[in-house]
Every structure is written in structure tokens, then in C-alpha cells.
């Protein structure tokens, strides 16, 4: 099987194709000079990419072949005159024919026509706690969206420095679900927010089993985010950004960093930690990764799995290095590239 990675960086996107996941070729940049912040292969065919510029703002592009791109004219947008600004699109996810875009300033938009037009999700975007939403270091962004394959009306989303929200009525109402998670900052009025979720992963066997890499540690919920408890046994640090789960083995992967004030790999050695028991324990799975003088972190959107057997794991660093494993993290290969700061990695089986 061949795997195609969409690698989004601060200065453009790159296609990285792995023939048999052994021989890797790099093409790009596309969207030269733009941040490529999220990517998606649509179930109906074609590609979607989110781009952003510090000067010209964000946009969504569509492509049939991954080469010729056209900007969506009616992309996600806050209303004219609104005091919210659409600064960046952090995640693109598709479920049951609907594409979800999580954005900064924090909000959620959906498209029912493959990304041609978008509608806001007012139940979340105009949430009663919105006055207490404070941006984290990465901005006030909605970066994670999870679905319940047994219940189309149930969706979760994660907003940095605010927390996890869940809807059980198809998006009409959203309730913060952060019980058991330490505050990043306590809001004077809204006590159910102020939790800094960094990323989430979900167990395909049980959509209510959710794993949460939070600013305050690594957590797990077994009840659909009603409650959370830490599961950090074996981790050198509870702090980090990405968490992904391989759908075939249910192995989890994370990249712990040294405490939040540094946000660096401990000791100059980037390490992937893997859990083979759904988060009960964690062990380093880092053979082949740079073991010294390596200070690039891995951002929340820059780690992906391909769900093949055995599972491939892929990650890009803030230093622009790209690392691939075709055996669930047992062995890593460092691709001979030095890209701009890597913001997004997604893996697609060809």
C-alpha cells in the first residue's frame, strides 16, 4: 500500500508520498508562502485544504487532483460587522456527508455540499459562556471535532483554553464537559470553562472513550466526556500537544514535552510515547528518532496514523523535520527534508 501525506507548513503545503511506505518522495510547495493549516480527502472524492496568511487571512480551497486548487467563494465567515475575526481554520473533519471546520476565533462551521458553502453553528459559536473564552498561547481556536458513529446527534469539540463541549442534539445546544480536568485559568463567572484541551483521540470501539492531551496533563474519559481522570503512568511529562489512536490496534501515540513554560523535548531528544493498553500505561517508542540536539516539538495537528496493518505513524516538527514509522512506532525513519515549521500532517492510503 502507498500512503500520501499532506504536510502543511507555515510557508506552504507538501505532498509526501510513500511507495509501499518505504520510498518517500516530496512534491511542493503548493500554496507557496501561505500557512497550510488543515487538509482532508473528501469521502466523495477530491481534496480540501485550509490555508491562512498573517496578512491576507484564511481560506478553504478545493481540488479534484491535489494539483489544481480553487478557493471556495462562500467559505466560513463571521458576519460583516462582527467583533469576531476569522483568523485560521484549525481542523477539517467529515462525518456522514457533513464537513466540519473548527476555526479561530473559536467557532465551528459546517458544510453539507463538500465545502462549497458553509454555515455557522450558532449553538456553539454564540455560546452563553463565550464572554469568558480567553485565548491560549496558540490563539482562541476550535481545533478538535469528534463524532459518535452510533449517534449522529452527538458531537464533541475542543477549544483551547476553554475546554471540551458536547452536543447531543445535532449541534443546537452544547454543554462544556470538563469535570475532573484542572483549570488553565478559572473564569470568575463560568466555572465550567477555562480548561485548555490541546488535542483529542477517540476509541473506535467505544465513541464515549476519549483521550485528551490537555495543558494540565493526559486524561481519559470513559463516559463521553462527562468526567475525566488522568492517565499518565509512564509518561515523562503530562504536557504535550498531539494524541492519535491507530484504529487497527487501538494503540495511542503522544509526544510529551518538558513542562509548559519550555515546551521542548526533554533533554534534547524528541520521543514518541505509545500506549498499547488504551492509556493505562505509556512507553517510549522512539527508536531511530534523533536522540540528541533535537529541540523541535510536534504541534497538535502534526501527527497522524494511516490505520494500515501494521499501522504507520507520521509526525512533523516545528523544526521542519518529518518522521515516519511503518510499524507502530517500533522504528522511525527521519526523512531527508528540512521544511518550514510543520503545522499539519494527515495520512491517506492510496
Amino acid at each position: 500500500m502507498d500512503v500520501r501525506l499532506m504536510v502543511g507548513t507555515s510557508k506552504g503545503g507538501f505532498w509526501v508520498t510513500g511507495k509501499g511506505r518505504r520510498e518517500w518522495a516530496v512534491e511542493g510547495p503548493f500554496f507557496k508562502g501561505w500557512k497550510v493549516t488543515a487538509g482532508l480527502r473528501l469521502a466523495g472524492g477530491g481534496w480540501m485544504a485550509a490555508v491562512a496568511s498573517d496578512i491576507y487571512g484564511p481560506a478553504i480551497f478545493l481540488s479534484e487532483d491535489g494539483e489544481e486548487w480553487e478557493q471556495v467563494a462562500d467559505g466560513p465567515a463571521y458576519p460583516d460587522g462582527d467583533d469576531r475575526r476569522l483568523r485560521q481554520i484549525w481542523t477539517l473533519r467529515e462525518n456522514r456527508g457533513t464537513v466540519y471546520a473548527g476555526v479561530q476565533d473559536a467557532g465551528l462551521f459546517t458544510s453539507g455540499d463538500g465545502g462549497r458553502s458553509w454555515e455557522p453553528v450558532p449553538g456553539l459559536n454564540d455560546h452563553e459562556t463565550r464572554g469568558g473564552w480567553m485565548p491560549g498561547a496558540g490563539g482562541l481556536c476550535c481545533h478538535a471535532v469528534l463524532f459518535d458513529h452510533t449517534n449522529p446527534d452527538r458531537v464533541w469539540c475542543g477549544i483551547s483554553a476553554v475546554g471540551v463541549f458536547r452536543t447531543d442534539d445535532g449541534g443546537a445546544t452544547w454543554i462544556p464537559r470538563n469535570r475532573g480536568v484542572y483549570w488553565a485559568h478559572e473564569d470568575e463567572e463560568f466555572k465550567e470553562i477555562g480548561h485548555c484541551v490541546h488535542a483529542m483521540a477517540q476509541d473506535p470501539d467505544d465513541p464515549d472513550r476519549i483521550f485528551r492531551q490537555d495543558h494540565s496533563g493526559m486524561y481519559r474519559s470513559g463516559d463521553g466526556a462527562e468526567s475525566w481522570a488522568k492517565n499518565e503512568r509512564g509518561l515523562p511529562s503530562g504536557f504535550g500537544f498531539p494524541i492519535v489512536m491507530d484504529d487497527s490496534t487501538r494503540y495511542l501515540f503522544a509526544v510529551p514535552l518538558e513542562a509548559d513554560q519550555y515546551r521542548l523535548p526533554a533533554g534534547g531528544a524528541i520521543q514518541v510515547f505509545r500506549s498499547t493498553d488504551r492509556g493505562d500505561s505509556w512507553h517510549s517508542a522512539s527508536a531511530g528518532l534523533p536522540s540528541e540536539h533535537s529541540y523541535g516539538g510536534v504541534l497538535r495537528g502534526a501527527m497522524a496514523v494511516d490505520n494500515l496493518i501494521p499501522g504507520g505513524v507520521y509526525m512533523g516538527t516545528t523544526s521542519g523535520t518529518l518522521h515516519v514509522s511503518r510499524d507502530l512506532g517500533e522504528n522511525w525513519k527521519n526523512l531527508p527534508v528540512m521544511l518550514p515549521r510543520i503545522l499539519h500532517v494527515s495520512a491517506w492510503v492510496e
Partner: peptide, 8 residues
């Protein structure tokens, strides 16, 4: 959206 913000 690339030239103007939400305030126009």
C-alpha cells in the same frame, strides 16, 4: 476576505 476584515 483577504483584503478586508469583518468590519469592512
Amino acid at each position: 476576505p483577504h483584503l478586508f476584515n469583518e468590519a469592512g
